[in-house]
Design a protein around this nucleic acid. Structure first.
Length: 565
RNA sequence: UGGGCGGUCGCCAAGCGGUAAGGCCCCGGACUUUGGAUCCGGUAUCGAAGGUUCGAAUCCUUCCCGCCCAGCCA
């Protein structure tokens, strides 16, 4: 996987390249990632983070981390902390350039006063409701506020008193004097400041008026000397307003470029819905491994490298699109295939007795840690008379195309011997298969001269006496439908939540080398998938593995297709 | 029916007047002590209709479809 070797062109990269060629900003490239600390970052943010930090790195520029914290009623330090650790985990560094829109409150206030002095803004006494009514509609022009013509002196006095706390919340606003007849609703005298008594996570109770995003964002970028303000499509309509403020204020003009936000199949990426999933208990928290949050994805076992490659591969464009989650899954598999050590683990154990293997005997067999990387060496795996294999690897009446174990059939045990199933032991009451009695061929030991004999399948296994117990959590898509909104009339999107998105297997048996696995360690359980030690619930007493993603499985696919017919 | 933006393979996405990259998915096949990995091979005429041109996905015209905007949210 070559993260940097392939830098496919996209329109933003082209714009930046062109701007440099024209020596715009003296060839300087300075971007920023501007989250609002009102929720956890998700994979959609990762796209923006990779874009902003990536472009800066690529062109020898800088990228700031700036919190757009202009709405204290929704923001919290919990979120700023999680955002910082998520960005770091993704692999990016903002050095000492950690900024906050709230750092600029005083400056923003002065900007507002400037606009008041040039009669480009005014204090408006209309209520929220009245402002809405005056705004007009998509097809009709709005009406001017009766307070629009206040004198500069009166405006200055009123605004100063707004700041001083003389008026109740919501009683007045500061508005830009633009154009109530503009076809762009954002230009119909937008609110710049509102009166809001809320304790801000950084400025405390210093302010009782707060700038709106529209009045803060563009100027914040300008103050920081941002050259390319990259944001999502919905802000395209706001650009004329930002330009208007910057022009009136005669300050540095970043170039705003909008791109389409990421959508993924089988999940949701809206802050509102993610919040509801957490609050209504559909998931265990922001870091539930089924969540598309960076915290969840990280806990699930995804690597930051795979996320970065994913973000590079999906591209950047203005077209609304929904990326198939299979693309994401492909990226982790590709990365983990290269780096995850292989290990044998039996999720649903079926006991196997090797009848002709001496009781009490055990031997150490050599197993390769990663066939993709010989450097990773080998390890010893204990073999003995009583083993466990996967329940799925045995069928009493094998369907066509099934070439694993069945009565009378032979298979190879990985790194060990070829065994033959001689007898099936069932529970007398339930009829369930509870044990297999097999015989092994001592001549077929892995690596020996005779070992070349061909059998149709190789199974993973674990020695019963040596195995370590563990819990495995198997995850599936959070939403059964590709599109979470794809529900019948009147039904809620939560109807699409996949009731089987989590399956917990409490009595798995894993090979002994896993005993000392540390939280976060990633492995490939041969033939099953990639798993990582759950950083939260795993302990010395109880090993817990999260399945990051399954291996591609041609047999499972074929069987599924067969069932559909 | 106002304004802004978009429509290239099932899903992403290059292309910027010279005759449709790549990735994912899918389907074949080779190889294989992971039905994994790897390797080969297969699959679009560019929303529609006109026009300009020797030549158009790329230029022009008209039409159709989708997304965003009427928070003192961001």
């Amino acid at each position: 996987m070559s993260e940097s070797a392939t830098a496919p062109s996209h329109f933003i990269r082209n714009i930046v390249t062109e701007d440099r060629q024209n020596n715009k900003n003296n060839g300087r490239v300075h971007t920023r990632f501007p989250p609002e600390p009102n929720g956890y970052l998700h994979i959609g943010h990762a796209k923006s983070i990779c874009l902003n930090f990536g472009l800066a790195a690529e062109f020898g520029g800088l990228c700031n981390l700036r919190f757009d914290d202009t709405n204290p009623s929704k923001e919290d330090v919990e979120y700023v902390e999680s955002i910082k650790s998520d960005v770091r985990w993704l692999g990016f560094d903002w050095d000492d350039r950690e900024f906050y829109a709230s750092d600029y409150f005083e400056q923003l206030y002065r900007f507002a006063v400037e606009l008041l002095e040039s009669a480009d803004a005014y204090v408006c006494d209309l209520s929220a409701d009245e402002i809405r009514k005056h705004r007009g509609t998509l097809t009709e022009a709005g009406k001017e506020s009766p307070y629009r013509a206040r004198s500069v002196e009166e405006n200055l006095d009123l605004f100063q008193r707004m700041r001083a706390g003389e008026f109740p919340d919501g009683s007045r606003t500061l508005r830009a004097k633009v154009d109530m007849a503009s076809p762009n609703l954002n230009m119909r005298d937008p609110v710049m400041y509102r009166i809001l008594r809320a304790t801000h996570h950084r400025t405390g109770d210093k302010w009782c008026i707060y700038p709106t995003y529209d009045f803060a964002h563009g100027q914040s970028d300008s103050i920081e000397g941002i050259t390319h303000s990259i944001c999502t499509l919905e802000f395209e309509d706001h650009r004329p307003l930002y330009d208007w403020f910057l022009d009136k204020l005669k300050i540095h003009h970043p170039r705003q470029i909008e791109f389409a936000r990421l959508n993924l199949t089988h999940t949701v990426l809206s802050k509102r819905k993610l919040l509801q999933l957490v609050q209504r208990g559909y998931v265990a928290g922001w870091d539930d491994p089924r969540m598309p949050t960076l915290a969840g994805i990280r806990r699930r076992g995804y690597t930051p490298e795979s996320l970065r490659v994913f973000c590079e591969r999906i591209g950047v464009a203005k077209r609304n699109s929904t990326v198939d989650v299979a693309m994401l899954e492909h990226c982790v598999r590709e990365d983990l295939n290269r780096r995850a050590p292989r290990v044998m683990a039996v999720l649903r154990p079926l006991r196997v007795i090797i009848t002709n293997y001496p009781e009490g005997q055990a031997e150490e067999l050599e197993a390769v840690n990663n066939p993709e990387d010989p450097q990773m060496g080998t390890r010893k795996v204990p073999f003995s008379r009583v083993l466990y294999i996967e329940q799925d690897d045995f069928r009493e009446t094998p369907p066509k195309g099934f070439f694993r174990l069945a009565p009378g059939r032979e298979v190879r045990l990985r790194y060990a011997y070829i065994i033959k199933c001689d007898e099936v032991v069932k529970d007398p009451t339930s009829g369930a298969v509870i044990e297999l009695r097999c015989s092994y061929d001592p001549e077929t030991k892995s690596g020996s001269v005779q070992s070349g004999r061909k059998v149709k399948a190789t199974l993973h296994w674990v020695s019963a006496a040596h195995a370590v117990e563990a819990e495995a959590r198997l995850y599936d898509h959070l939403f059964a439908a590709e599109n979470s909104d794809d529900v019948e009339e009147g039904a809620d999107w939560t109807r699409n939540i996949n009731p089987n998105s989590l399956e917990t297997l409490a009595s798995c048996r894993v090979e002994p080398c896993l005993k000392d696995a540390a939280p976060g360690d990633r492995y490939q359980f041969e033939r099953l998938g990639y798993f990582c030690v759950d950083p939260v619930d795993s302990s010395d007493r109880k090993l817990v593995f999260n399945r990051t993603v399954t291996l591609r499985d041609a047999w499972a696919k074929a069987e599924k297709a067969r069932k559909r017919e």
